[in-house]
Computed example of a mutant assay.
Amino acid sequence: MDVISRREHRRSRRLLRQMDRAAGRRRRARGRQVLGGLVAVVLVVLAGAHLTGTDLVDLVRPRAYVEVDGRAVAVPRPVPAEGRLLPEVAVTTEGAHAFLHVDDEGNPVGYDPCRPVEYVVREDGAPRSGTALIEEAVSILSLASGLEIVDAGTTDEAPVMDRPLIQPERYGEAWAPVLIAWSDESELPELEGQVAGVGGSAAVPGADGRGRWLAAGRVALDAPDIEGLLARSGGHAEARAIVVHELAHVLGLDHVDDTTELMHPITSARTDLGPGDLQGLALLGQVECQP
């Protein structure tokens, strides 16, 4: 190779190195632009989550929705739990029982045993011994089901059959607590005649749409009817049986045709839980916890 050729060769190599360095700078610049774009997207998403109150978990775990007052509302996520709150109740009796809600396999749908079942009371018009009747009924049902049923105070909410499941202005963003309200047929026509109470709960999906549990239960008790019972000999036990019967509906039991069970539609034949009632309540308390 002559001198001129060697010079041209060196010049070509320097030019190639310069071109490689320039290309590298351009690639790094493009990389920074892409990274900056990704950061910007993440910041926009985070800002949107902050501004709309969206939980970041929602970005990776889609939420189920329910209709409340004609609008779609995200199903509340359950508070963290570490297992059952009370020991599971074993099934030791057998008799007639039925469930208001069942899953596709026929298993009962009940309240989550890993979270408390909270209830509030509208005390307006309550008969004498009204508080004692509720407290005794709650204790009976908690022991029979293995569910922790907790008094969350009083409310001014009026009973309606089509109760809103979520009431942020009154109870926050969670499912509304169970409502126990003293009422009469002038306020709630369903209490007309010999009906001393009505009760039930909604079957709702889990936060991600999987599974079903009960929520937002409500009980309306006919105060004049129960006041009349309390005036009779042995009336306290009969009145308490009505409250237990309606709260058992809230926990998921349906009526049965067997007159020896408290869940027979006419409760005057029995004032305590029968064998089928106990079996059904124990099974309702054994449903799986919501993850």
Rank of each mutant, 00 (worst) to 15 (best):
R25S: 08
V138T: 10
Q18N: 10
P78S: 02
A90P: 04
T267G: 07
V109K: 08
S233E: 15
L278Q: 10
G146A: 11
R25V: 09
R26G: 09
G106D: 07
G37N: 07
L191N: 00
L262S: 03
Q18G: 13
A49N: 03
V195S: 03
L43V: 14
W213V: 14
G235K: 06
G24W: 11
R270C: 06
G280M: 01
S129P: 00
T155W: 05
E261A: 08
G200K: 04
R32I: 09
D2N: 15
D2K: 12
Q286R: 15
L85C: 10
L221V: 13
R84D: 05
V57P: 01
H236V: 10
G199I: 01
S233P: 12
R28L: 14
E288C: 10
C289S: 10
R61D: 02
L281K: 03
A49D: 00
I166Y: 05
Y111A: 02
L43Y: 11
Q194A: 12
V57L: 15
A282L: 04
A64G: 11
V41F: 11
I242N: 04
N107M: 12
A29M: 13
A90W: 03
S233T: 14
S12H: 10
G280Q: 01
V219P: 08
T131V: 14
R122H: 04
Q33E: 07
D277S: 11
D162N: 13
V57R: 14
Y119D: 00
I166P: 01
R13T: 07
P205M: 11
L247H: 06
A203Q: 11
S145Y: 04
V3P: 04
D222W: 09
P113N: 12
A237T: 07
V60T: 13
R27Y: 06
R25T: 07
T260R: 15
L15P: 00
R25L: 12
T271I: 01
H9A: 11
V44F: 13
V68E: 07
A137S: 14
P87M: 06
E227I: 04
R21G: 08
A81C: 02
L278W: 01
Q194G: 10
E105K: 12
P78V: 04
V117H: 00
R218D: 07
A74G: 10
Q286F: 03
A126F: 01
H236A: 12
E169I: 06
R11Q: 14
H97C: 05
A126D: 03
E227D: 14
D2E: 12
V198R: 07
L16F: 10
A237D: 13
D277Q: 06
L147D: 02
R77M: 09
A215R: 03
T131F: 13
Q290A: 14
I166Q: 06
R170G: 02
G125A: 13
R11F: 04
I166H: 05
V138M: 08
A132Y: 11
V68K: 05
G276R: 02
A181C: 04
H236K: 14
V138Y: 03
A207V: 13
L38C: 15
D258R: 06
T267W: 01
R30C: 10
R6D: 02
V73S: 05
V57N: 12
G53Y: 06
R115F: 12
G285R: 02
H245A: 06
T54Y: 00
H97S: 02
S142W: 07
L147S: 04
L191Q: 00
D103W: 07
R240I: 00
L51K: 06
G153N: 11
L59A: 07
